[in-house]
């Protein structure tokens, strides 16, 4: 489906970063809470995902 309105980066976003919009998503392999490996390929097989990266509990 065609996009209705393109996303306009807000002033709060990271300056100087090259946008990945429309690019292939870098493949990844991460461990889940049980220590099993999960890949992006597996995750998006059924439906879109929202990947949320955050600072963590350090």
């Amino acid at each position: 489906m065609e996009k209705i309105a393109p996303h306009l980066p807000g002033p709060e976003e990271l300056p100087g970063r090259t946008s990945l919009l429309g690019q292939p998503a870098p493949e990844f392999r991460m461990k889940d809470e049980e220590g099993n490996f999960v890949t992006l390929r597996r995750l998006v097989r059924q439906r879109p995902i929202l990947l949320h990266l955050y600072r963590g509990a350090w």
Binding site: E34, Q46, I49, L50, L51
Partner: peptide, 11 residues
């Protein structure tokens, strides 16, 4: 849409 979170932490 499925939400997946990730951070630099151990399992």
């Amino acid at each position: 849409i499925d939400l997946i979170a990730a951070a630099n932490d151990t399992p």
